[in-house]
Write a protein that binds this DNA or RNA. Structure first.
Length: 859
RNA sequence: GCCCCAGUGGCGAAAUGGUAGACGCGGUAGACUCAAAAUCUAUUGUCGAGAGACGUGCUGGUUCGAGUCCGGCCUGGGGCACCA
């Protein structure tokens, strides 16, 4: 009996799969029902990490299971290949982003292949391939034509050292994540995608995504942030600034508090503020101060409210004699609502802070239940709870919701405004001043304005001859690339040198996978056949950005006629992270990696120095904390199957899993023990033991229950429970005496092993093939159909019913399964032990739950 | 601050309102071995010699019966955040 050798076995089976091309998705004529499984494609950073192992192993379980169930499975892989790290590598190490990226892809592809994933590699794509991003340029131009892409001057985070725009995620504590320089707010003309056009639909669509985690749907809903309120205008009192004859429009969610109005405020970026600044030097200075990234960030952190009194006044909509001051205020955002508010300090904390600072009136108008209208006052904490309106004329006595509706109705009747919903969601700024991204296919002509690059000139390919010796965008200083003729007039013109946010690249790759070689961006027939993705698997960190952008782009492309679905992902599963203990040297606090730590005399020390090591928290594996474990090392030591098994066995897939050496060793032991069962020769049918038939039946029952259990666990994404069933079954199998099994016993064992090989196949595919071959299975395990259980065998014939007396378990009784409660009751009362325990008590009630439990209420 | 989720042995965890702790890790004892590793066997929630009692963050409630359902609190994690 040889020990299982994954190093020999695993590559062997991968070669067999490759040769038989078993993972290629079936074409249009394939009669099987289609099933599309997709994991979020990786960024080619260089090496795979345990998070990848977990993500792709989870997806692979689904893919292999569905294939065994008889589905025509599409399970592709690609690379989210554009992005900053490639440029950083170029700047730091002088390598070209393109070479760096494709090298990384090559090594990561090899690592992923080693994982034994059932991927259709013929569909592989990288977003940095011109065939991919060129198609993206084509549909980008379609969106522009429809007005879904547009240019706008917007305020961006600008890194003054790196000379580039930073995404919000790249700003840490007000500083650029790379340069460490304070980030400035800068106005730049940028390309935007009109995601706000789809805000309604994106919210409504969430309701149909019943195979998405509630958490993700909720996060998207919050992100879109719809609020209901009133949009109305104030007329100016006295002087009306030029251009504001229509008044000043504000948005509020609390129209009920209009009688508590104290002042009106506009954003520093509001046209009115700009207007005032023309005449007022102090106003101009105030606006500059608000704009300065650093200053305003700090103000926000301390929550300090700053304002500038414009000297203008507006009329209260319900009382023309009531005048309100107009301020420019730093806490009012231009890109939310109308960029202007009316303030009710008594019922809004920010307004209250501002009112206290500038000594403005605070008038409570909502009275909490039970409060005294004479004495109720707001001092330093605004009252935002429910109550009844008071000091509010026609709103008096109404609750907040009624008052809101009434105030809106009045304003509408007066023709000053309308009830409105406003979303927190902003349009998506997609311009990046980077080289390593998809060029935006636009040409700027001084005469003709922005022009789309003509179709025959697409794709706009990134030039290879660029330099990274200086910060900023290499495309901007390339000597020739951007100088082109205007497609309209033929005169001298310039290309757009910005590239698209990489989230654009990942917003449609799932559609491209359905036919990655298509002439058009999307092969409609293939996309219609495969989309939506039946099961998408990835990290929760993409709950909003990627998953929202993909939903948006899918809708935009549908409206463009390129797709037929609105929702790209019918099922979504968000898996947890892989964590590990952290270790630090006690004396100097240095992080040390698990491999550098060893136990000496019952204490942990750093192997190299002997210094004591303290165990820190369990955290996500990260290079900075040095708590990573390299997948390749694990594969070398324990094999791929053990690694796959462990990341799925120890925790439910949605939760974090803690990597531990002991844990992977346990998985490795299981692999070996399973192998030992496959490898053991069936005992020659000699003299059958007297209870051989009984044992055979018990094994068959266990086998069929196992099929049921594992199948249900996979269907419910409870892979850890499914694996526990397999462990359990192995213990049963090992516990059965080999001799005297008899013909029935041998047959049952043969059945058990054949079932086991197929049930482990999604988790440990290599071992499954080895076992399937050993037990004489037909063809390959990957081609073997998923076993079907016999319900009669999976059911119990006898059950042990616990007997409770007054809710406490006292004894148990063995009865045949399915026995009616009335009959159980008779048996119970006749039972010796029950009778003994009931001595001195009178039975009041007996509750029998069929095949479950008996509870006797006695007193 | 607002919104959401989770608290079960030494650890990761399991449990359609029905025997709490399956399965794994770790521990203990034993077998094999000259010895160790590996492997195998037994055992392992706490208290108790035992019968038994007590145990799912705390606290009330619903129920014949609550880890599970409902109310209040505590702790931890996540998301959003001058969003009017």
């Amino acid at each position: 009996m040889a020990r299982y050798n994954p190093k020999e076995s695993e590559p062997k089976w991968r070669a067999v799969w490759d040769q038989a091309n078993v993972f290629a998705a079936g074409g249009p004529d394939d009669p099987r029902e289609r099933y599309y499984v997709l994991e979020m494609f990786p960024y080619p950073s260089g090496r795979i990490h345990m998070g990848h192992v977990r993500n792709y192993a989870l997806g692979d379980v689904v893919a292999r299971y569905k294939r065994a169930q008889g589905f025509n499975v599409l399970h592709p892989m690609g690379w989210d290949a554009f992005g900053m790290p490639a440029e950083n590598a170029a700047m730091e190490r002088g390598v070209h982003p393109k070479g760096w990226t494709y090298d990384n892809i090559a090594s990561m592809r090899a690592e992923l292949k080693r994982l034994g994933l059932s991927i259709d590699w013929s569909r592989e794509l990288a977003t940095c391939d011109p065939e991919y991003y060129g198609q993206q340029q084509r549909w980008f131009l379609m969106l522009w034509k429809r007005g879904l892409a547009y240019r706008k001057e917007g305020v961006v985070n600008w890194d003054p050292v790196d000379n580039t725009v930073l995404a919000n995620e790249q700003v840490i504590d007000g500083r650029g994540w790379r340069s460490g320089a304070p980030v400035e707010k800068r106005k730049l003309t940028q390309w935007f995608l009109r995601i706000t056009d789809y805000a309604d639909d994106l919210i409504e669509g969430l309701g149909q995504l019943d195979r998405w985690p509630d958490k993700v749907r909720l996060m998207q809903e919050n992100w879109i942030g719809r609020s209901k309120g009133l949009r109305f205008r104030f007329n100016f009192a006295g002087y009306t600034p030029t251009g504001f004859g229509e008044g000043l429009e504000v948005y509020t969610t609390r129209p009920d508090t209009l009688f508590g109005a104290s002042f009106v405020a506009v954003s520093p970026d509001h046209p009115l503020a700009q207007h005032v600044a023309v005449y007022h030097q102090d106003a101009a200075a105030f606006i500059v101060r608000c704009r300065q990234g650093g200053a305003s960030e700090a103000d926000i952190e301390t929550g300090e409210k700053l304002g500038f009194d414009t000297g203008l006044w507006v009329q209260h909509p319900f009382d023309p004699n009531w005048r309100l001051k107009v301020y420019i205020a730093n806490f009012v955002l231009m890109d939310y609502g109308t960029g202007a508010i009316f303030a009710c300090p008594a019922h809004d904390q920010r307004d209250l802070d501002f009112a206290r600072k500038y000594d403005l009136p605070v008038r409570p108008v909502v009275l909490p239940t039970g409060a005294d209208p004479e004495t109720f006052a707001v001092t330093n904490e605004a009252y935002t709870g429910p109550g009844r309106l008071f000091r509010s004329d026609f709103l008096n006595g109404m609750d907040v919701e009624t008052a809101k509706a009434e105030a809106i109705a009045r304003i509408e009747a007066q023709g000053l405004g309308r009830g409105a919903t406003v979303d927190r969601l902003r349009d998506w700024g997609v311009s990046r001043q980077r080289y390593w991204g998809c060029p935006i296919p636009v040409i700027y002509c001084a005469q003709c304005g922005p022009q789309p690059v003509p179709s025959e000139q697409l794709p706009v390919i990134l030039p290879d001859d660029v330099t990274f010796d200086r910060p900023g965008n290499p495309l901007l200083r390339h000597p020739t690339w951007r100088h082109v003729a205007c497609p309209a007039c033929g005169g001298a013109a310039e290309r757009e040198t910005d590239t698209l946010d990489t989230f654009v690249d990942s917003s449609w790759y799932f559609a491209r996978f359905t036919n990655p070689k298509a002439e058009a961006a999307i092969d409609k027939a293939a996309a219609d056949a495969w989309l939506p993705v039946d099961q998408y698997v990835g990290g929760i960190e993409h709950a909003v950005l990627h998953l929202l952008y993909a939903r948006f782009i899918t809708r935009a492309l549908k409206d463009e006629g390129l797709l037929s679905v609105s929702e790209p992902f019918a099922g979504l599963f968000t898996q947890g992270m892989v964590t590990h203990e952290t270790y630090r040297v006690d004396s100097d606090g240095r992080w040390v990696s698990p491999g550098e730590v060893e136990a000496r005399d019952g204490r942990l020390v750093e192997a190299a120095t002997g210094q004591p090591v303290v165990v820190g928290g369990v955290e996500k594996m990260s290079k900075s904390k040095k708590n990573t474990v390299a997948p390749e090392d694990i594969f070398d030591q324990y094999g791929v199957d053990a690694a796959r098994l462990f990341v799925m066995s120890d925790s439910p897939p949605e939760r974090d899993v803690q990597w531990s050496t002991g844990g992977v060793e346990g998985a490795f032991r299981f692999v070996n023990r399973v192998w030992a069962e496959f490898d053991s020769q069936p005992v020659a049918a000699g003299e059958a033991h007297s209870d051989a038939d009984e044992r055979a039946r018990a094994l068959r029952q266990a086998t069929h229950r196992l099929i049921k259990g594992v199948t249900e666990s996979i269907e419910g994404f409870r892979f850890n429970s499914g694996i526990a069933r397999l462990y359990e079954f192995l213990n049963v199998l090992k516990g059965l005496p080999a001799d005297g099994a008899g013909p029935a016993g041998l047959a049952a064992r043969q059945e058990a092993l054949g079932v086991l090989a197929r049930l482990i196949a999604p988790f440990t595919p290599h071992l499954a093939e080895e076992g399937w071959a050993r037990v004489g299975g037909e063809g390959l395990a990957v081609h073997a159909p998923w076993p079907v259980y016999d319900p009669a065998l999976a059911a119990d014939d006898e059950v042990v019913l616990p007997v409770q007396i007054n809710g406490k378990r006292r004894c148990e009784i063995r009865v045949s399964a399915g026995l009616e409660p009335a009959d159980v009751e008779k048996l119970i009362l006749a039972d010796e032990e029950v009778t003994r325990r009931l001595e001195g008590l009178s039975v009041r009630k007996i509750i029998v739950v069929k095949d479950r439990i008996v509870n006797i209420v006695a007193g």
